[in-house]
Design a binder for these strands. Structure first.
Length: 839
RNA sequence: GCCCGAAUGGCGGAACUGGCAGACGCGCUAGGUUCAGGACCUAGUUCUCGCAAGGGAGUGGAGGUUCGAGUCCUCUUUCGGGCACCA
């Protein structure tokens, strides 16, 4: 548009380059820890440098930038950094495809990303830029890993793990979405038995939950809910059932949250991989039948994808256990719906009071016995019920020996206590959260700093050998084992303990390790002695405002919380939670789906800046909708933002010459004209509301609408020469400029200069609204009769009820509706509305 | 199945604690202006009856609370998101 409009005074490309240069020269966005100043740490989630930045990204950074600029104007010492989540599989895959090195590909992308972000004028302190693929960064991943190893928080274990055949690597639990790989929506994750490195996130399950109380105010409720569900705490009891006819007196422990229903148990059901399945079958008459079924079940249970809809199948082991409460003999079954990884991998089946057990027992003709009878409904009969009764509330125990008549909740308490006293059970708490599997069989990540020595076994490397640097010469094929494993110069090393030959660990760390603590590094990005200086982090932390997509609700944000708690326990930080406030912005959609390169529906950031300039791009993404909502991209609506900036710019230019030489003033004086009053009132009213939108609600869209209204009002008062003193004109135009400054900083700087300032906006504070000037002296009161709008009255502000009723009843538009009716009630909301109730 | 969130003109969306529904912008219509315009200025633009003045309806649907409901309550529909054999 700009290039087709040579007469326009507003030339964004020229202005934007000019001010970006000035900002850089004046180093206005650089900051240092300074305990004498109030701090504000605002951060957008760091990008993965792949492809090119589109307007979806830019929206995110624009929101953060507005906040950073507003806080600076309000006198805060603002930390607003940017960096690169530079390790990861796409770099490796791209390198394989293009026969280049992941580092080359990554650094090219970083250069391009940086150019784009600079072009949009984001107010980052670029001296603090970090790139997680640099040894100066990832050495601290290794350092943290060693500390966790010392504390027992990092450990190796052989376990069934998630394997993505496309990524050729294992995945963390959190990276498996409905059974599919988080990066490959079409690729089912397989299960493999491997020995891998884990971080003990489960050590903090309870604290994660506990500390939600610190986040309630600043985090979106749904993020907390998602994390809470992911952690999945359940209270219940483990109960031991003795195996009937066993020589060794074996027992099998089940986990239940409903011990109160134990008299209704019809069977015990084991997970197919439960360790007792084999031993039980050994002396079983059912062995021949069972073994092929078991083999099949173990195979199909690998696919977790359609677990929820899968039909329940099982078989009888031929063996029995004894219900420790009733002494009853219960058959032991194996069921495909019982998970080994949760609870004890064994359950009691209570078909009358659990949906899954109900389905299973009906299918295999196991007895259904009601032991909780709803009080206020017809009596349930196990033989005929169509659905289980699962509620706690409104039930009483029956057929439960000494516990008959108790409510489920009291029974749970009493029976758990009794089981503990008798020694066959124990109240427990279980969590769904699993430890974080961090080993990856890929190259482009942080090497794990341990070696394996024939003599000494696994040996952690001493700190002075860090960083373990990735070898540069590497053959990447994307197939087979970990690339590091096929690079002998990397693998073969010496044992730091005995000096003998040793092999390095050839896996790398999950890249979520990098992003779990990167925001600490921004506080002290070039420290070569430690991950960061405690005093610097002590000043800047916790993060006051974090901004990013909801997609990271669990993965990144939970890992970050984990890292913080580990660091706190290591004595490195003093706070409990790293992020005080979290904002999850909406996506930018085009054609109904999120902008993404793979979908081919992106609007590139450069494309936008070329055509309209960065300020228009920023303004449009802020104006289109509230920041938390998804934004459907509309090429036509951008013209509106572009036109508005032109309109504002022309206005400033028109008044430039005269205003350069006067001082702004909002002092009205006794001879003030109506125009002057009107303009100043509108300007200060706008300022009041925009200030509150910036501070509390973040409704940038309505803030912009208000600024547009102010602009329209100024246009409506043109020519301003006629009846508006220059100092008041200047006051109004300056307020307009300052309100735009956080959102469209380049044009605001230019306008500020046009208005005669040479200092630059960075040294200007957010203006204070003058409540006196903002006050309306006349208000329009809607008058309703029985809640229906019938008229409007222009009255002096603050008018009393008696007076306004008098005015209203003499208004012909009202009088005609009153007729013969009587006013029975008057509702008057001062300065707002009058409602006459008539009968 | 469970838990959240959303639904407002032709479109994106305003309406902060219940108080003028449709701010602001897009689009459209008309007029002005310009060598020209996908530029600029002005006016209009929820639907509907009416020449008009004015009336009626109206925030997915059905009820309810209230002087007054887009906003609160109950039920319901559609869409979006999350969780889901977690015992």
């Amino acid at each position: 548009m700009a290039e087709q409009n040579p007469k326009a005074g507003y030339e964004p490309q020229k202005i934007e380059a000019k001010w970006q240069k000035r900002w850089e020269e004046a180093r206005v966005f650089e900051c240092e820890a300074d305990p004498s100043k109030p701090k504000y740490y605002v951060l957008e989630m760091l990008p993965y440098p792949s492809g090119t930045l589109h307007m979806g990204h830019m929206r995110n950074y624009t929101i953060g930038d507005v906040v950073a600029r507003v806080k600076r104007m309000r006198g805060f010492n603002v930390l607003h950094p940017m960096g690169w989540d530079a390790f990861g599989l796409p770099a490796e895959n791209a390198a394989i495809k293009n026969h280049t090195h992941p580092r080359v590909w990554t650094n090219n992308n970083i250069a391009e990303f940086q150019r784009t972000l600079r072009r949009f004028g984001f107010s980052y302190d670029w001296r603090r830029e970090i790139s997680t693929c640099e040894p100066e960064y990832y050495r601290w991943n290794q350092w943290f890993f060693l500390r966790m190893l010392e504390k027992g928080l990092a450990f190796r274990k052989k376990a069934p793990v998630n394997w993505c055949p496309k990524c050729c690597t294992v995945l963390a639990n959190e990276q498996v979405i409905k059974g599919y790989c988080w990066r490959h929506e079409d690729t089912l994750v397989e299960t493999r038995d491997l020995e891998q490195w884990f971080l003990r996130t489960t050590a903090y399950s309870e604290q994660f939950l506990e500390d939600f109380k610190l986040l309630e105010e600043g985090w979106p409720e749904r993020v907390i809910t998602m994390q809470r569900e992911w952690i999945g705490k359940s209270r219940g009891a483990n109960v031991k059932f003795a195996v009937a006819n066993s020589s060794g007196g074996e027992t099998i422990e089940i986990f239940t949250t409903r011990i109160d229903t134990i008299y209704g148990a019809s069977a015990m059901i084991l997970a197919p991989t439960h360790p007792m399945v084999g031993p039980l079958l050994e002396n079983s008459p059912e062995r021949a039948n069972a073994e092929p079924l078991l083999a099949q079940m173990r195979q199909t249970s690998v696919k977790t994808a359609d677990l929820a809809t899968m039909e329940k199948v099982g078989f009888f082991t031929g063996r029995y256990v004894l219900n420790p409460f009733s002494g009853e003999k219960l058959p032991v079954w194996v069921g495909n719906f019982v998970l080994m990884g949760y609870g004890t991998g064994a359950i009691m089946a209570v078909p009358a009071h659990d949906q899954r057990d109900f389905e299973f027992c009906r299918k295999y003709n196991l007895p259904v016995r009601v032991v909780i009878q709803p009080v206020s409904a017809e009596t349930l009969d196990g033989a005929t019920i169509k659905a289980p009764f699962e509620e706690h509330e409104g039930g009483k125990l029956v057929n439960s020996g000494p516990y008959d008549g108790l409510t489920p909740d009291t029974a749970i308490e009493k029976m758990t206590a009794d089981a503990e006293a008798e020694g066959f059970g124990k109240g427990t708490v279980v969590y769904k959260l699993r430890d974080w599997l961090i080993s990856r069989q890929r190259y482009w990540g942080t090497p794990i700093p341990v070696v394996y020595c024939e003599k000494d076994g696994m040996v952690p490397l001493p700190d002075d050998q860090l960083p373990i640097v990735l070898p540069e010469n590497i053959r990447l094929t994307g197939e087979g084992a970990s690339p590091l494993a096929t690079t002998p110069e990397f693998v073969n090393t010496k044992c730091p303990k005995c000096g003998g030959p040793a092999r390095r660990d050839t896996d790398t760390m999950d890249t979520f390790v990098d992003s779990s603590w990167y925001f600490y590094r921004y506080c002290d990005p070039h420290n070569s002695k430690a991950p960061f200086d405690a005093a610097k982090v002590g000043y800047w932390f916790p993060i006051d405002q974090y901004i990013g997509g909801i997609t990271h609700a669990i993965l990144h944000l939970l890992y970050s919380r984990f890292w913080c708690k580990v660091m706190r326990d290591l004595g490195l930080v003093r706070h409990e939670e790293p992020i005080t406030r979290l904002f999850t912005q909406g996506m930018v959609l085009k054609g109904g789906t999120a902008m993404s390169k793979s979908k081919g529906n992106v609007v590139g950031a450069h494309e936008m800046a070329d055509k309209y300039g960065a300020d228009t791009g920023r303004l449009y993404t802020l104006f289109a909708t509230q920041p938390e909502k998804d934004l459907e991209w509309s090429e036509e609506s951008i013209d509106g933002a572009w036109r508005f900036l032109n309109r504002v710019y022309r206005l400033t230019e028109r008044h430039a010459d005269l205003l350069k030489v006067v001082m702004a003033s909002s002092s009205l004086g006794s001879s003030a004209t109506d125009k002057e009053k009107k303009l100043l009132r509108k300007a200060h009213q706008t300022l009041q509301r925009v200030t509150s939108d910036f501070e509390t609600r973040w409704h940038f869209n309505s803030a912009i609408a208000l600024i547009m209204e102010l602009t329209n009002e100024i246009y409506a008062c043109e020519p301003l020469e006629d009846g508006v003193r220059p100092e008041i004109r200047k006051e109004v135009l300056e307020l307009l400029t300052l309100m735009l400054a956080p959102m469209t900083p380049h044009i605001a700087e230019e306008m500020w200069e046009i208005l005669g300032h040479s200092g630059g906006l960075w040294s200007v504070s957010w203006p204070a609204a003058n409540a006196e000037l903002a006050k309306d002296d006349e208000v329009e009161i809607p008058v309703q009769i029985n809640g229906k709008l019938r008229s409007k009255l222009k009255v002096p502000a603050g008018i009393g009820q008696e007076e306004i009723v008098k005015l209203a009843t003499s208004d012909p538009a009202i009088a005609s509706h009153l007729d013969s009716k009587r006013v029975v009630k008057v509702i008057y909301v001062s300065n707002k509305l009058l409602n006459l109730v008539v009968a």
